[in-house]
Design a protein around this nucleic acid. Structure first.
Lengths: 231, 231
DNA sequence: CGCGGCTTTGATGTTCATCAAGTAAAGTGG
DNA sequence: CCACTTTACTTGATGAACATCAAAGCCGCG
């Protein structure tokens, strides 16, 4: 993990948008100066469960997973976050310590802002406060409603759902490399590794997907969508 | 000291706390005057999925359920909210329309504040903004983390969990009347009605609980806790 | 009283977890 | 670079957990 030079040059950064819209020029300068970018290699730990929350962390590039570590048993993946999703949205304003971990699924860069400074900005600027609330609210809503959506699906529906999630929302391509191994997919959808594999194999046998190790090609997207919707 | 002429008399109201802590006297006056209390009978609809969000709603007394309606199939209960939980926290700052419904499980009273007014307060008062964010964040966190906790339990664990939830968190008594029918318990824990009933019967046969229709008495709380923890 | 909704129990089949065992791939140390 | 270890992946067999279907009892209400 290494630090990059400070530049507020990120395209499409929601936080920057919020700043430019609602914060005066001189404060933006300060934020740009205090922001720290950190680079992570695939597999690196970005946030560790239990550690104190000191920064407001935003994902600039790459892909990460949020998960709860379970001592004895297997972990649980809460969400896969792509760039410009918040990374530490869950507890950042409600708790002093993280109650989940975050690791990089691909080489990733985060943008870190001192949390006390952000809090000062919120105190000083109500419009900025509302923007942040809206963003955080939105992400929480998404997690909650998606978990309800997935909860009612059987394993075929869940595997189809996650394949479409990567194809549509992350890679925007029907050919992509899975950023998760089979065990992690299982931890994400709440089923066992063996049955995830079995389901993938069945999809392959039925000509719905092609599998080349971690690479997936979606052949019959319509069918996969049906399985996701009605499974 | 003179008694306040307004009706901001609710004990233990977090929102009032936030106001008193961070808002000037004359604004509290205004809030007390614009607040509208609404009374609901058991079973009444408080919020309907799809309708526009116009108020900041707080539960003053009673008990409510938040749920998603599912056209064909059975619904899904997201959370049971008790007094002084926010009722419409989920989308209130991120969306224009509700994406869940709320009904009263017991006779309930809500405290409704005009959302635009609350937003103005947030814009004008950063400390108040932070308090609200903290509260909302906390509720979202709880929902997300509890759903992960429940997800890994089998049906025995889930039923035990929900019985303890009512006994400890809602009624603070080992004898209580279930505010949900069997089907609703099933919708809450994501299992079928029949198997919820079967599990309750088994708990009864094992002497862990007593059942008198909707009334439950927890006999062996330690055992029930074990089932919840390890089930 | 009879109707409809809620509850309960039983029988049956499906879905899925677990266990076992083997193959492939990826890292490690000489 | 090769032997060795470890980790990931895959398939099959088995049983447990759970959904579904069916039927009957209960209870409140018009």
């Amino acid at each position: 993990m290494k630090e990059a030079p400070n530049k507020c040059d990120c395209e499409k950064c929601d936080v920057k948008e919020m700043f430019y819209e609602h914060v005066e020029e001189q404060h933006i300068e300060v934020v740009c100066n205090i922001k720290i970018e950190k680079a992570f290699k695939k597999g690196d730990m970005i946030i560790e469960e239990g550690k104190p929350i000191e920064s407001f962390i935003y994902l600039k590039s790459g892909l990460v997973k949020l998960f709860k570590h379970r001592e004895d048993e297997k972990g649980q993946i809460i969400i896969i976050a792509k760039p410009f999703d918040f990374v530490n949205l869950l507890s950042v304003f409600s708790d002093t310590n993280y109650n989940y971990s975050v690791t990089a699924l691909e080489d990733s860069v985060t943008c870190n802002l001192d949390l006390d400074y952000i809090k000062d900005m919120i105190r000083a600027n109500g419009e900025f406060a509302l923007s942040i609330m809206k963003k955080i609210s939105k992400v929480s809503d998404t997690i909650i409603l998606e978990s309800l959506t997935v909860r009612k699906k059987n394993i075929h529906g869940r595997v189809a759902y996650i394949l479409l999630f990567f194809a549509d929302q992350i890679y925007e391509d029907k050919y992509f490399e899975l950023p998760l191994n089979r065990r992690e997919i299982a931890e994400f959808i709440g089923k066992t590794t063996e049955n995830v594999i079995r389901t993938l194999s069945e999809f392959r046998k039925d000509g719905i997907i092609k599998i080349f190790g971690k690479f997936i090609e979606i052949v019959d997207k319509e069918k996969l969508q049906q399985i996701s919707d009605f499974g």
